[in-house]
């Protein structure tokens, strides 16, 4: 008999229905990842016990760990399904949706909150105007190198999934947002919105709600120096608070 892969998947058919577990067994393909397993289930949606079921829903796009869409909990650890190779995983491979975002269906979650928060802190470089603004300022190489590290964030939400302070009881926006504020405050043109961003991070769910458990930096798939960003933005917020207190 050909080699197979066993999977245990936490399923949920609608946002309001209750979750349940189903087990599957799919044929092993050389070099396959977790996404490939889900494709096999989609081709033949039958459980391990031979019961016909609905195909498991999931999201994916880039398949090379740069989009964040396929983020889920694999064997108890949050990560991207595309870069999770079956040969490296213990079986049965346990798949669960992320717990900090509302489930849409099965492994699909609604990560809108992160994008709303990016808008809240104005995570962009303002270049819109009524006239041509010319070329932007040059960024020295050492600075560019740091920018690049920070710009690798794909809004996957791993840092929020593992953060003990990111939950329904708190408004904390999390490491992803704080790191993006650092990135755009760092940018010579982006810095024109620095005060707005810092005031946003002094507001509801701002950087002060960080509990310094530092799980974020441990799980970030892009190895972004998130705790460095939290320290840096903490410093910027301290200086902004002093400025607000004494100079206004």
């Amino acid at each position: 008999m050909a080699e197979t892969v066993r999977l245990r998947i936490k399923r949920q058919l609608s946002p309001d229905s209750s979750p349940f577990w189903e087990e599957f067994e799919v044929p092993m393909i050389h070099g396959m990842n977790v996404i490939a397993c889900l494709v096999e289930i989609q081709k033949n949606p039958v459980t391990k016990d031979g019961k016909k079921t609905t195909p498991v829903a999931w999201e994916c796009s880039c398949l090379e760990e740069v989009c964040g869409a396929c983020t889920m909990i694999i064997n108890g650890r949050v990560r991207q399904a595309c870069s999770a190779l079956v040969k490296d995983l213990e079986q049965p491979i346990v798949l669960e949706p992320m717990t900090k975002f509302p489930v849409v269906r099965d492994l699909v979650v609604d990560r809108q909150k992160m994008f709303d928060n990016l808008i809240k802190v104005k995570a962009w470089v303002p270049i819109d105007g009524t006239h041509h603004m010319g070329p932007g300022p040059k960024i020295p190489e050492p600075e560019r190198a740091i920018h690049y590290e920070l710009s690798k964030c794909m809004t996957c939400g791993c840092c929020l999934e593992v953060c003990p302070q990111f939950n329904e009881k708190s408004d904390f926006m999390g490491a992803q947002i704080i790191s993006q504020v650092r990135l755009f405050n760092f940018h010579p043109t982006g810095a024109s919105l620095k005060e707005d961003r810092l005031h946003a991070l002094m507001g509801k769910g701002g950087v002060h709600e960080c509990g310094n458990a530092q799980n974020c930096v441990e799980v970030c798939p892009k190895e972004i120096p998130l705790t460095h960003s939290i320290g840096e933005v903490g410093r910027q917020v301290t200086l902004q608070a002093l400025k607000d207190w004494f100079m206004k």
């Binding site: 108890g76 650890r77 593992v162 003990p164 302070q165 939950n167 009881k169 708190s170 904390f172 709600e209 509990g211 310094n212 458990a213 530092q214 799980n215 441990e218 799980v219």
Partner: peptide
């Protein structure tokens, strides 16, 4: 303390 949800069994890092 109330606003936090510890997850040490799942993520047992030193700082956690």
């Amino acid at each position: 303390v109330y606003t936090g949800e510890p997850n040490n069994l799942q993520y047992g890092y030193y700082r956690n």
